[in-house]
Write a protein that binds this DNA or RNA. Structure first.
Length: 428
RNA sequence: GGAGAGAUGGCUGAGCGGACGAAAGCGCCGGUCUCGAAAACCGGUAUACGGGUGACUGUAUCGUGGGUUCGAAUCCCACUCUCUCCGCCA
């Protein structure tokens, strides 16, 4: 949510920023409603002040054994009615303002490249060499099937298209990756591991920015009005909802692995082949609550923590900075990490690292106290995948495959998998 | 799912419908004392929005939303959450 105060003081700045991300705005409506709201508010305050004063007087008389005049009582009853009318007015105005504010995306930071589509994203750097194969590397859907570790047909049997199952070494590989990544982030990057619910209330999704605008991308349980999380970012954001964090508690870094549920109505096609784009997947998510002064620096650290996962797995990757037009709703600045997949011959997005500045903090009322006497301030929130499964599994299978159909396991995972290769299955 | 109890400030915990933003204690911050610390003592310690250069001041907030009343933390209704017992269960 954007600051109403900022909209009030510098509407042009806000308008330009929103336009840069392709967002038409209804700022003048907000400003008009806000003027009305402030008018009604101060009028109500004055009436209430008057009523409080008279009521106190009535009480004083009463304790002195006297009664207030019927005239005064009648007048106060009227004031009460006016107050409730104004309150109703304020409530309605606030709701309208809220609705508009809730639908406006975050403002891009000044250094975000201008652009309208993903074509305008900027490659920041590239790491690692594409492996040279002396055979034609298979895409994971062939490889996985051949090795008997990925079964897409059975996933569809259980749950429909774009669900999958993994068996044996494939399932183990994913579990090993999760454990290893969590250990890496907690032991070397300073994150605290959290275990979270995968079902959340509407309020949690509003705090994170997914609702009300993106309801059609989410799975919803009607019966109990609970929603399946699209990412751990949602529950983590709400961990400190409506809180004022004490001095010294920032930066506060969390890492969590949760299943992620994404209700996408994408037509079947090249992008949906295999398990690149599925409706349920696991993701290790890093999240930080930081001071506003440090958020840009912390974003670079967060990004490096995610890149570190790729480097240690020896997966070639590149980092993109998203242009204004490609930013997510709540993001002010985003880097994507893409790993090279030798089999599909394409870059796969495995991480998206963003700063949401104070956008989520304002929605979820997350503040901190800089020092013992200071007034509370909104925190800045950052999030980034570290990393998303099963795409890392795909990249490992495709990049580490051998001519005989076996797959080597990256060294750092050996203690976690308990095996160093996934052996080829003899054909026939 | 059935029966009961409860929800007050960072925490514990008072609060006959009228000066209650809320006693007291703890914690925290500042000060006195000390070479320093502890103890002791003194003072200060919620949030949001508005007005004023400022001291200060108005309004709202006692789980949430309604209602009664000139006036609600206090009375009434609904909801939510927590706890205890029973049932079910990984």
């Amino acid at each position: 949510m954007l600051s109403l105060e900022l909209i009030r003081t510098d509407p042009d700045l806000v308008r330009r920023a929103l336009e840069s991300r392709g967002e038409g705005s209804s700022l003048s409506a907000v400003l008009e409603l806000d003027t009305q709201r402030r008018g009604a508010l101060s009028q109500g305050d004055e009436l209430r002040a008057h009523r409080n004063q008279v009521s106190r007087e009535v009480g004083r008389l009463r304790s002195a054994g006297q009664e207030a005049s019927a005239e005064v009582i009648r007048e106060m009853r009227q004031v009460g009615d006016q107050v409730s009318q104004l309150e109703e007015q304020v409530r309605s105005l606030e709701q309208q303002i809220h609705e508009i504010l809730f639908s406006l995306p975050n403002l891009p930071l000044p250094d975000v490249p201008q652009g309208s589509t993903e074509e305008d994203n900027v490659v920041v750097r590239q790491w690692g060499e594409h492996r040279v194969f002396d055979f034609t590397p298979l895409p994971h859907w062939d490889l996985g099937e051949q090795l008997g570790i990925i079964d897409i047909a059975r996933g569809a049997k259980l749950s429909g298209s774009r669900f999958y199952t993994m068996f044996g070494a494939g399932a183990k590989l994913e579990r090993a990756l999760i454990s290893w990544m969590l250990d890496l982030h907690t032991q070397e990057h300073g994150y605290t591991e959290v275990m979270l619910p995968a079902l959340v209330k509407k309020e949690s999704l509003e705090g994170a920015g997914n609702l009300p605008k993106f309801a059609d991308l989410l799975y919803h349980d009607e019966e109990d009005d609970l929603w399946l999380v699209p990412t751990a970012e949602v529950p983590i954001t709400n961990l400190h909802r409506d809180e004022i964090l004490p001095p010294g508690s920032l930066p506060c870094s969390y890492v969590a692995c949760t299943p992620c549920f994404r209700r996408e109505k994408v037509a079947a096609g090249r992008d949906t082949r295999g398990i690149k784009r599925v409706l349920q997947f696991n993701k290790v998510e890093m999240y930080k609550l930081v001071t506003p002064e440090s958020s840009e620096e912390e974003l670079e650290k967060l990004l490096d923590n995610a890149e570190d996962v790729c480097r240690r797995l020896q997966l070639p990757y590149r980092v993109l900075q998203l242009c204004t037009g490609d930013l997510g709703f709540q993001s002010a600045k985003t880097y994507d990490i893409e790993v090279w997949s030798a089999g599909c011959q394409e870059w796969l997005e495995v991480s998206s690292c963003s700063t949401c500045t104070d956008f989520q903090a304002r929605r979820a009322h997350i503040r901190y106290r800089p020092s013992a006497q200071a007034r509370p301030q909104l925190v800045h929130t950052l999030n980034g995948s570290g990393l998303a499964l099963p795409r890392v599994v795909i990249a490992i299978l495709e990049n580490y495959q051998e001519a005989d159909g076996s797959v080597r396991i990256p060294e750092v995972l050996h203690p976690y998998t308990g095996f160093t290769t996934i052996p080829a299955v003899p054909s026939g």
